[in-house]
């Protein structure tokens, strides 16, 4: 579905952020990008979203491909209600459908919060609004750049499950950047390890999704995946 071929990127043709990077993601896959700070993970997401253009190589999609971005910070408009924040992508596309806003808020379990302002929300609720804003335009690919890094462990686990549910329900392709080995092993179908602007390794966790979340996180497959990721990252400062 998404193919990156020999993609390179540098600002002002000086230092290469990404070089000769090849990657392919199938429709409906959840892909994690893991690696040390500054290895180009966030740049890769920005290239896929179209916010940046590759200096070399190509990025191609099979079929329709609308992307949506969720950042590390919720980045909501503080002067606008939850409803207006979520409605933003539709408004920018001049395609307002209030039912889509209702659906997006229900999907992140924030029905009834429409008229609240961001200041009145908790950190986890703000992040849910940010996810609802990304979902409202019904994207094909959801890009998440360390979205739960600022959340505590319990909330982070809840948000992980929310993403998994949304991914299944909306048949989304998800690419996310994380610094957490456990988050990558739990959420992803494929984990790409990045180093110096290139893919240096790949792990496929293959968890049994029919199990309950707690059981998945204590399964042998989960432990093995986490171990493999840790081994590939050994020696790196994550």
């Amino acid at each position: 579905m998404l193919n990156l071929l020999n993609v390179g990127f540098s600002y002002d043709n000086t230092v290469d952020i990404l070089s000769d990077l090849c990657l392919s993601v199938e429709e409906g896959e959840v892909v994690a990008l893991l690696g040390p700070s500054g290895c180009g993970k966030s740049t890769l997401l920005r290239l896929i979203s179209g916010l940046l253009e590759p200096s070399t190589g190509s990025i191609s999609y099979d079929g329709k491909c609308d992307t949506a971005f969720v950042f590390q910070e919720p980045s909501l408009m503080p002067w606008a209600t939850v409803e207006r924040n979520v409605k933003l992508p539709l408004k920018l596309k001049n395609n307002i459908d209030n039912q889509q806003v209702v659906d997006a808020l229900e999907a992140v379990e924030l029905a009834g919060f429409e008229k609240r302002f961001p200041e009145a929300l908790s950190g986890g609720q703000k992040m849910r609004v940010s996810i609802a804003r990304a979902l409202v335009a019904q994207p094909d690919i959801l890009l998440l750049d360390e979205p739960f890094a600022a959340l505590d462990e319990i909330l982070r686990f809840q948000m992980n499950n929310l993403i998994l549910n949304l991914q299944v329900k909306n048949k989304l392709t998800v690419l996310f950047v994380t610094h957490s080995i456990y988050e990558a092993a739990y959420l992803a179908d494929k984990v790409f390890i990045m180093k110096d602007g290139m893919i240096s390794g790949e792990v496929t966790p293959q968890l049994d999704r029919s199990l309950k979340p707690d059981e998945q996180r204590t399964s042998i497959e989960f432990m093995n995946a986490a171990k493999q990721i840790a081994e590939l990252l050994a020696g790196e400062v994550v």
């Binding site: 920005r46 979203s49 179209g50 992307t67 949506a68 950042f71 933003l88 920018l92």
Partner: peptide, 11 residues
């Protein structure tokens, strides 16, 4: 990030 969202949706 908000600037990027506006760019992403073709504002």
């Amino acid at each position: 990030n908000l600037q990027d969202i506006f760019t992403l949706y073709g504002a």
